[in-house]
Design a protein around this nucleic acid. Structure first.
Lengths: 102, 102
DNA sequence: TCCATATATCGAAATATACCGATATACCGG
DNA sequence: CCGGTATATCGGTATATTTCGATATATGGA
């Protein structure tokens, strides 16, 4: 867990917003029937919600994944991104430990 | 408390290190006798420890102050910077609340 | 195999950040 | 008021980030 990479990934309002949106699947359109049992949200749905270009969102998700804050799973042509809850909590804990006195 | 400003200020390893150093006054040379009762550390001491130019450290401290993470007090020709513990804790709490699910 | 769809990667332009040295400002002691 | 010291601000260069459109890659279906 690289605190530098984590902070760089979080230092952008859209990337933070995406993490927040991903807390609740209902922030996105319903999954296709064949994806009903899968975790995560495909890039196209995230892109539509964020209203940035496809390439931008793809690279944003790459940054978040590189920082460990999300996981990705490919299913067919789709890549599904989901929050990595444990990693997000660990990052917050580490940052708090480093920066607070108590 | 502006989370965007806070993350921008924290998104630099030297600025984070300064916050950590400021946890413990003994990370710096002893204060001058006439400053013994003052809180905080002067820019010159921080600069020496960080080994970056005076202008860089001055502007770094300005960023940290702008984000509310440190306070500054001028005494004579010196500016003393100290951690703003409450603000640092509040920032960590806010970030954790925003980003974690629990 | 060929096409359409979903995503990733590339290359570029605009903007922001990391630093620096030089200079300005503020303050102190004489 | 003057020189010296501490800090702040300015202007610049190098590098990184944001964001795009174009293109490449992967996959699934006719």
């Amino acid at each position: 867990m690289d605190i530098t990479k984590t902070l760089a990934a979080l230092n952008n309002p859209v990337r933070r917003q995406i993490l927040v949106w991903l807390k609740d699947r209902s922030n996105f359109p319903p999954a296709l029937a064949e994806h009903a049992d899968l975790e995560g949200v495909c890039v196209a749905y995230i892109q539509a919600k964020a209203a940035l270009s496809q390439s931008t969102i793809s690279s944003y998700m790459g940054l978040l994944k590189d920082a460990g804050l999300v996981t990705s799973e490919r299913h067919g042509q789709w890549t599904f991104y989901a929050r990595n809850e444990a990693a997000i909590e660990a990052a917050m804990t580490a940052l708090t430990r480093e920066l607070t006195k108590s």
